[in-house]
Amino acid sequence: MYRFGTTAPAVSKGPPGAMFGVLKAPTVFTRPSAGDRILTTSSGGEAAYVAGARWIAPASVQFDEALSRAFDADPGRARLIGRGEVAKAQMVLRLEVRTFEAAYVNGPKAPPEIIVQVRGVISRTGDRALVGDQVFEAKVKAADNRVGPIVAAFDEANAKVIGDLVGWINAAGAGLPKE
């Protein structure tokens, strides 16, 4: 079993100011990549799972855990607020993981390219106005066509996307009205 989300994303330095709360809606994953199997695709449109290899938990769960750790470690102003927490959220974050796969773009024997693509949508809670809508993507070539290097590339690509997301959310908070 394998894990990703252990590589720490790059730390952002957002604009100074008061902290603001971000309520994260449930992350949406594509069905083929949401579970505990490692999805691969080929240039011919075929999809398969890596035989005998599984994530330690569903990819959707590990993604959310990595995102939470990134916000906890980031010195920026944004703080994730979980459902049921007693705190006011100024923004709502919706994430749609569109691509989370190992793509064999150079044939089945070559190391795959890991692609992580996430669409983020932020809106203000007060007036529900759209603050931002952006797609984040990372592509990382695995060092070898073995499970260990493939998982390491997933970890690197995921960390890049999450780091970009956290920085984007911190920057979006600069436009929030002072409360």
Rank of each mutant, 00 (worst) to 15 (best):
Y2S: 12
R3K: 13
F4I: 05
T7Y: 01
P9E: 08
S12K: 09
S12E: 13
G14D: 03
P16S: 09
A18V: 11
M19E: 15
F20E: 05
V22C: 07
L23H: 07
L23F: 14
K24A: 15
A34R: 13
G35S: 10
R37W: 01
I38F: 00
T40E: 10
R54F: 06
W55C: 01
I56H: 00
A57R: 12
F63W: 13
F63P: 02
D64A: 08
D64T: 11
A66I: 03
S68I: 03
R69W: 06
A70P: 01
F71P: 08
D74W: 02
A78F: 09
R79I: 01
G84A: 12
M91T: 13
L93Y: 00
L93K: 01
R94C: 05
E96W: 12
E96I: 08
E101S: 12
N106F: 09
G107M: 07
P108Q: 10
K109N: 08
P111N: 03
P112V: 04
P112L: 05
E113W: 00
I114Y: 04
I114Q: 01
R124F: 06
R124T: 14
T125D: 03
D127T: 06
G132E: 10
D133H: 07
D133R: 13
Q134N: 13
A138P: 02
K139G: 01
K141S: 13
A142I: 08
D144P: 00
V147L: 10
I150V: 14
V151L: 02
A152L: 11
A153V: 08
F154P: 02
F154N: 06
F154W: 06
A157D: 06
A159M: 01
I162R: 05
V166A: 12
W168T: 02
A172V: 05
K178I: 13
